[in-house]
Amino acid sequence: MSLPTTPSATAAAATRLPLIAAATGATPDRRPVWFMRQAGRSLPEYREVRAGHGMLEACFDADLLTEITLQPVRRHGVDAAILFSDIVVPLRAAGIDLDIVAGTGPVIAEPVRDRAGIATIPQLLPESVGSVARGIGTLTAVLRSDHPGTALIGFAGAPFTLASYLIEGGPSRNYERTKSLMYSDPEAWHQLVGRLADITIAFLRMQLEAGVDAVQLFDSWAGMLSLADYREYVQPHSARVLAEVADFGRPRIHFGVGTGELLAAMGEAGADVVGVDWRLPLDTAQRRIGGDRALQGNLDPAILSAPWAVIDREVRRICAEADAAIATGARGHIFNLGHGVLPETDPTVLTRIVELVHTL
């Protein structure tokens, strides 16, 4: 399965980026590696630059988001920078009243729980994320000049995960309000998630137009659903998001937590790369997904606090499982964690993992 070409992109140059090569079935000169939440709380330089700045303030400041995005590239030598942002950024940019509260996460001022609330959800206008686009422009220039082997990944939250925050009003353990709306009023549910898909599409297309090399769609909480519910209530909307950015011809990564039973359906939604959390070996994941998609993952973030001998063993195991997956049809492997870097992680451990993965 080959990616379509675009007039604005230089496909041959992009394929020289190890991450893009692995995602598209080419042969990278090393196994690419990056870490979810690499630009964040585990880095002392991040804490220093964030001092006195709120999370959302940093996400909308072109200079701050540029600096924070580049920090793990300088420190760890990862093969991809991921745009410093948050999945609720496009909701805030569209005009939804919310904040990111330290120790809690996104908090919605007026949760959306009925058709009247759904009707008030606005569209995302490109000018409302102009500072993000400017930051991406700077990032692409710096990476091409100073880190020529490093890709830039953009991202957005998938419609289901955005809906869960809007309905619950913030993080949730059981998603009872979300499921209640989904089951009791399917028409309203699809209207809500369709509007959120529009916002996600607009945000991803802005990032692609600004120059990111790949995008990741985070459906962080889809693992709370059964396979049947995922297929009926979620997959069509994620598939539309992925289809609406396919014309850029750049890899689309799809990831969620606890989605082992959903992997085949997530792959069917149209991703070029499927992210796998730590609960499932990559060769098993490949059998579930099928096809020739690339895989991303999947070291348990908690293992990063173990002795180095344990980490070394686990990294080698995952790479061996990935190679077995490739032997049975996977397009390639991008090494990553099975979720984000934990705040207490020693950054030197991440640097050592990058060095090790590049030898495997």
Rank of each mutant, 00 (worst) to 15 (best):
P122C: 04
W34A: 13
E45C: 08
R144F: 10
S164L: 02
Y46D: 01
N174F: 14
V88A: 10
S42W: 01
D99V: 15
W278R: 08
A239N: 08
V273H: 00
L225V: 13
A23E: 06
V276R: 02
H76D: 11
G77E: 05
V276Q: 03
D79W: 03
D346H: 08
G54N: 10
L162T: 06
V215R: 02
V349P: 00
I108W: 11
E232H: 15
E321V: 12
L262G: 06
R250M: 10
R250F: 06
Q123V: 14
A324L: 12
I318Q: 00
E67R: 15
E168F: 07
R317Q: 14
G297A: 01
D247Y: 13
Q286M: 12
H339V: 04
V33L: 02
T259H: 02
P90R: 08
A243D: 15
I121A: 08
T351D: 11
R331K: 12
R317W: 09
I326M: 07
F335Q: 07
A141R: 14
T66A: 11
A265F: 07
Q296W: 07
L304T: 08
W308Y: 11
D272R: 03
P32Y: 01
R313S: 15
A51Q: 14
A12D: 14
R287H: 15
L217N: 05
A80Y: 07
A14K: 12
E48F: 00
R47G: 09
V193G: 01
P28V: 01
F35G: 01
E187K: 10
V315M: 10
